[in-house]
């Protein structure tokens, strides 16, 4: 198991390097331009000077090399300096700078991380907590009214995109309900809000309800289906009949024997979904103006901001590779029959 993990970890290095190169080339070769969104009143010579100052005109391989150096060598040192107060001699070196904001990309990411984790992370948690019981009951009472309702809700969650459901709840709770009503909810997320006391917590809770529930609907739909399918597979197994024949209580049969065995694939699905929390929910963030990582990525793409797009997508790639590995290791832990050595 340990050797397997080490081997996989070493293999990720060339994989990630290759991914970073592919991302870089895709972003660079796409016809976008950091000065493309400027007003037409700015003439082309000035645009050229701006591009020159940003370093867009350097050879591609130089730009890629610089990015690698900044991302793997300079930024980790700066992080260590900040965390431990060491001096690693980073002063005076040019950090990974975003074209749009002319500020370090890593600072932008660190600034956006809390609101994304807060909103998308909560949604993932809420979605999972709702999905598991729905999946279990739906499977145990297959084709009952509850199961049919669960199927319907999942179907809606799967098929209704957040740019529809998000706007729908805004119209319902922010526009149609008068703003002095108790049920009114803000349509625009206040990212500067800080929770300091009970009142501010209540406000934070209210502004999170809509984005979290819109996202949770989708997550619930997915995970409850997986749980249901997995439970159904196990409910018809011989060991379940044996357990019942031995005179075990129905509760023990379902919640201990069946549920535990059904969790193996479900846990994998949940683990593989975690990187998407960091990726933010691009559309939901836009709809509610949460302005997290997803919104940062989309604005950077529109603005031709190569360093930001490159860094963000690469961090997502790292997370996906990492959580794939974690899921593989989890398999081995959950099911002792699976061995990699």
């Amino acid at each position: 198991m340990f050797t397997f993990t080490i081997r996989r970890l070493i293999l990720t290095v060339p994989t990630l390097l290759f991914i970073s190169f592919v991302i870089f080339m895709i972003v660079k070769l796409s016809p976008s331009d950091p000065t493309g969104n400027l007003p037409l009143t700015i003439p082309s010579e000035v645009r050229e000077q701006i591009r020159e100052a940003l370093g867009v005109n350097k050879p591609l391989i130089v730009q890629y090399g610089l990015w690698l150096k900044q991302f793997f060598w300079l930024e980790p040192r700066i992080y260590l300096e900040h965390a431990f107060g060491w001096d690693l001699g980073t002063a005076g070196e040019t950090r990974l700078i975003s074209y749009q904001t002319r500020s370090p990309v890593m600072d932008l990411i660190m600034q956006r991380m809390p609101q994304t984790l807060m909103v998308v992370g909560t949604a993932y948690l809420v979605g999972t907590l709702i999905a598991l019981p729905i999946g279990i009951i739906s499977a145990y009472k297959q084709y009952s009214v509850f199961d049919q309702m669960g199927t319907l809700v999942s179907m809606i969650g799967f098929s209704v995109p957040p740019f529809f459901s998000g706007v729908l709840v805004i119209v319902l709770f922010s526009v149609m309900i008068p703003s002095d009503s108790y049920f009114w909810l803000p349509s625009i997320y206040d990212t500067t809000h800080e929770v300091t006391d009970w009142e501010s917590f209540k406000f934070q809770f209210r502004q999170m309800i809509m984005p979290v529930m819109v996202l949770a609907l989708q997550i619930t739909a997915q995970i409850s289906r997986f749980t249901r399918a997995s439970m159904l597979d196990n409910l018809n197994q011989d060991y379940v009949r044996t357990a019942r024949a031995k005179g075990m209580k129905e509760k023990t049969v379902v919640l201990v024997h069946v549920l535990r065995n059904s969790m193996i694939p479900v846990v994998t699905v949940i683990a593989l979904g975690i990187p998407s929390i960091f990726g933010g929910a691009i559309i939901t963030e836009q709809v509610f103006k949460v302005n997290g990582l997803g919104q940062l990525l989309i604005i950077a793409i529109q603005g031709g901001d190569v360093p930001t797009v490159q860094t963000l997508t690469f961090i997502f790639a790292i997370l996906i590779v990492l959580f794939n590995l974690i899921a593989d290791v989890l398999y081995g832990i959950l099911d002792p029959r699976i061995r990699y050595d």
């Binding site: 016809p31 976008s32 493309g36 037409l40 031709g304």
Partner: peptide
């Protein structure tokens, strides 16, 4: 629009 107004001489 980011391509149309982008001014990329290669496009």
């Amino acid at each position: 629009s980011s391509v149309f107004f982008g001014g990329d001489a290669a496009s």
